[in-house]
Computed example of a mutant assay.
Amino acid sequence: MNKTIVLSLFFVLLSSWILAAPVAYTNKASFLSNVSVVSPQSINFDSYDAGTILTNQTISGITFRSPGSIPLQVINASSGVRNPMVSSSGTKILSPGGSNLTQEEDDLELIFANPLRAFGMDVIFDTPDGASFVSASFYDASNNLIHQIGPHIPAPTGGITFVGLVADSVLISRVVIDDFDPSAPDDHIAYDSLVFCPVPEPTSFLLLCLASLGMALILKRK
């Protein structure tokens, strides 16, 4: 291997990291298998009492906001809203408006204290009829839309849809779940099992780059 090949490999690795395109997922296993999802952290709501309000609360660097005035309330999944719902982590879920049938608008905004490389979560429907009026939008620090999943994310049998994005070089600063037709009867939705990856320290990548440069220098001396 000559130094030209080594340097070419170095620049290919560098450009692949810089130019990596965001990849969206609606399957959690596929999301977790992405090589960029390293040492993911998670949040669920099982440690909170039913009735706890998390509006404007920050957990592990993620601030939970309600774009409207409806409170973000922890409920027992088995209580649900119109129907019992399913928790993907245990027994509790986060429901805008709690179990109140009259509060249909189930929007959620998540703001990250430190931008993330990857983020995903479970969206739970109490009437999983296959369709929804719900979208998931991912934004960067300048409020530019990175990607939108939707406008109609699946509402499958079983009631849980995963939405996630691996952004790599374009970091995620905010996520908005938009229930854009709050009059629809299947739009009582809740949330569970947030999974996220802070920007990793670039140790492995830097070591690879340094090794490539070191090899190039050795070859140059020969």
Score class of each variant (00 low, 15 high):
2 N>M: 03
3 K>M: 12
3 K>T: 11
8 S>R: 06
9 L>P: 00
10 F>I: 09
11 F>L: 11
11 F>K: 02
12 V>Q: 05
12 V>F: 12
12 V>G: 01
17 W>L: 13
22 P>M: 10
24 A>R: 10
25 Y>P: 09
25 Y>W: 08
26 T>L: 09
27 N>H: 09
28 K>S: 13
29 A>K: 13
33 S>Q: 13
36 S>V: 04
36 S>L: 15
47 S>G: 13
49 D>N: 13
49 D>K: 09
50 A>F: 04
53 I>S: 12
53 I>L: 04
53 I>T: 14
54 L>C: 02
55 T>K: 00
55 T>I: 00
56 N>V: 05
57 Q>P: 00
60 S>T: 08
60 S>H: 14
64 F>R: 02
65 R>Y: 03
65 R>N: 12
69 S>C: 00
70 I>T: 15
71 P>K: 06
72 L>Q: 08
77 A>W: 12
78 S>W: 00
78 S>H: 05
79 S>R: 01
79 S>L: 11
81 V>Q: 03
82 R>V: 12
83 N>M: 10
84 P>Q: 02
88 S>Y: 02
89 S>H: 01
91 T>P: 00
91 T>F: 08
93 I>Q: 03
94 L>F: 09
94 L>H: 06
94 L>D: 03
95 S>G: 01
96 P>K: 06
99 S>M: 02
99 S>N: 11
100 N>S: 13
101 L>S: 04
101 L>F: 12
105 E>Q: 11
106 D>V: 01
109 E>T: 10
109 E>R: 08
110 L>G: 09
112 F>V: 07
116 L>Q: 14
119 F>S: 05
120 G>Q: 05
122 D>Y: 01
122 D>V: 00
123 V>C: 01
125 F>L: 05
125 F>G: 02
125 F>C: 03
127 T>I: 14
128 P>V: 09
128 P>F: 13
128 P>H: 12
129 D>I: 15
129 D>R: 14
130 G>A: 09
132 S>G: 05
132 S>W: 06
132 S>D: 07
136 A>F: 02
140 D>C: 03
142 S>Y: 09
145 L>Q: 10
145 L>N: 04
146 I>A: 07
146 I>C: 09
147 H>G: 01
149 I>T: 14
150 G>E: 08
153 I>H: 12
155 A>N: 15
156 P>V: 04
156 P>W: 07
159 G>K: 08
159 G>T: 11
160 I>W: 04
161 T>S: 15
164 G>N: 08
167 A>V: 06
171 L>R: 07
174 R>V: 01
174 R>H: 07
175 V>N: 05
176 V>R: 11
177 I>L: 15
183 S>I: 11
185 P>S: 08
186 D>P: 00
187 D>Q: 15
190 A>I: 08
195 V>W: 07
195 V>G: 02
195 V>L: 14
205 F>H: 06
208 L>I: 15
208 L>V: 14
208 L>R: 08
209 C>T: 06
209 C>K: 03
210 L>F: 10
212 S>A: 14
212 S>K: 00
214 G>Y: 05
217 L>Q: 03
218 I>C: 11
219 L>V: 01
220 K>Y: 10
